[in-house]
Amino acid sequence: MALSRFLAAAVVSVVLVSVPALGDEIQDINLQFRKGELAAALDHANRYLAKNPKDAQARFLKGLILADLGKTNDAIEVLSALTGDYPELPEPYNNLAVLYAAQGKYEAARNALEMAIRTHPDYATAHENLGDIYAKMAAIEYDKVQTLDAKNTTAPAKLKLIRNLLGGQAIKSAPKK
């Protein structure tokens, strides 16, 4: 479910192409982002947003840049605000879900993906990511079964199947509150 820079850039391209007259600055920020010039892209995005604070594409790009910089909480803040201002856009919800899943917050990820699907029912990426979230949640539950009932013979096989399905990805449990 990890959103690579290439996939993120492709998503940005789709979002940006949907706008009729795209500003050169947004294209420049996107290019810096795709080249991996993250600090410069963030600085450029911040300067652009100082003049155009409601620009959805620039805000979305800023969220992606922050996520790539490892500033997950800042990225979540930017994308959450974007969903509040533009609830009809599915991409911010999808990207929020990716960030929540990376933190082991699968319920929050599921909720975000369901919102993405509500806004855009044929958004295939959100459907696939939702399937991944359900698989991760199932793995956590099968792992609990092994802890609670050592004699259970079906849970280990199901857990192995899900781990194979997920390509051996580590499954994070939700953080304790």
Rank of each mutant, 00 (worst) to 15 (best):
M1C: 08
K136R: 02
T72G: 09
Q57E: 05
D43C: 14
S80H: 12
L42A: 15
L161I: 08
L130G: 00
Y48F: 15
A67M: 08
E37Y: 11
N164V: 08
D74G: 04
R59N: 13
D132N: 14
K151H: 10
M137S: 08
A116C: 08
V78P: 08
L96A: 11
I117E: 03
G168D: 01
M115H: 13
L161K: 12
L96E: 04
A21Q: 09
T83S: 02
K35S: 03
V145Y: 15
G23P: 11
G104A: 12
V17Y: 07
G167P: 05
D143A: 11
L161F: 13
H120F: 00
I65S: 03
Y48A: 15
I29C: 02
S173T: 09
Y134F: 07
L161A: 14
P90W: 07
D68A: 05
Y100A: 00
A155I: 07
A155C: 00
S18L: 13
L66P: 02
T147I: 15
V11L: 15
V11H: 13
I26M: 14
L22Y: 01
Q32A: 09
S4Q: 02
A58K: 08
P53S: 05
Y93F: 14
A75S: 12
A10M: 13
M1Q: 11
L89W: 08
D43A: 15
G168L: 01
G168S: 03
V11D: 12
H120L: 09
R47V: 00
Q27G: 15
E107M: 04
A10C: 14
N95H: 11
K62T: 03
D149N: 11
R118V: 00
N73W: 08
F33S: 00
N94P: 05
K71D: 06
D74R: 02
K105A: 15
A138S: 06
T147G: 14
A21K: 05
R47E: 11
A170P: 00
L69I: 04
I171H: 10
N30S: 14
I29R: 02
A124V: 15
N94L: 15
L161Q: 13
Q146P: 10
E141P: 05
M1S: 10
A124L: 11
Q146H: 13
A155E: 01
G167T: 03
P121C: 09
D24W: 00
D143Q: 12
K176P: 06
K144S: 12
Y100H: 09
A155K: 01
K54N: 09
L96G: 10
E107I: 14
A139N: 03
N52Y: 14
V15H: 10
H127Q: 03
Y93D: 12
N94A: 11
N164M: 06
A126E: 05
D28F: 13
D43E: 14
K176C: 06
N95C: 06
V98M: 06
G167H: 06
I171K: 10
L66G: 05
V78T: 07
N111W: 01
E141C: 04
R5M: 07
N111P: 01
I133E: 01
V78C: 06
L69Q: 09
E114M: 04
Y134P: 01
I140T: 02
V15M: 09
V12C: 05
I117W: 07
E77Q: 09
Y134A: 01
I140G: 06
D24T: 11
L38T: 04
A101T: 07
I133D: 01
D132V: 14
A108E: 06
K172D: 09
V14Y: 14
V15K: 03
N164R: 13
E77R: 11
A97Y: 00
N94C: 09
L82C: 04
I117M: 03
